[in-house]
Design a protein around this nucleic acid. Structure first.
Lengths: 96, 96
DNA sequence: AGACTAATTAGGAATATTCCTAAATTCAAG
DNA sequence: CTTGAATTTAGGAATATTCCTAATTAGTCT
């Protein structure tokens, strides 16, 4: 859970996640979309992988990264637990 | 949005948020719940305040911090946009 | 195998985060 | 207005993050 939110805490990593929503992408294509060195992007991809947010799979010469929606949903569940969406019946005020 | 996810990226800050779900708490009471110095907790409260996640209000001798649910919902909206919950009609596959 | 392409690892500098103790601030109440 | 309690600010050490360039690995293709 900690690695997850830590991964989400960097703008470049969030943008990578956004890019991958449309489908898996090669490491090089992701790197090309940023004004940063490829190794730097590899580092961010590693952070996302550690967090379970993406998974790599080889595709011929290149490696494609796929977004793991389930990990995003974990973070979502945590936040929903605080907006009251996941609130227990007993805790509610509007009890009749 | 960046300050928001950055604020959420530290376990102590997430735990503070969880504590405040039950209602506003004094800075000292929050600090007492952790095995850390009070100034350290003040620092975390400042980060949460910068992110709009909490707001301080004086209550006699002490200062109570209140959770700002709307800020949590911002983060929630961002994540929902990637799980497909906020997906546009045109993007869906199960179109009939 | 050898050359080429895709991607990662290594090493290191700059910067940011986290946490501490000590000092300052702010307010309440005698 | 002084004392005391609640809280924040200041300053600084230890650690972590972010980013770079150079070197390396892994895989493709002739």
């Amino acid at each position: 859970m900690n690695a997850l939110f830590k991964a989400l805490s960097h703008p470049v990593r969030r943008r990578i996640i956004e890019m991958l929503r449309k489908g898996p992408m090669a490491s090089g294509d992701i790197a090309a979309a940023f004004d940063m060195s490829w190794p730097t992007i590899t580092g961010h991809l590693n952070a996302l992988k550690e967090a379970g947010l993406v998974s790599p799979e080889r595709d011929g010469a290149s490696i494609r990264y796929r977004l793991e929606i389930s990990a995003v949903e974990e973070a979502l569940a945590f936040l929903m637990a605080m907006t009251g969406t996941g609130q227990r019946e007993d805790d509610r005020e509007d009890r009749s």
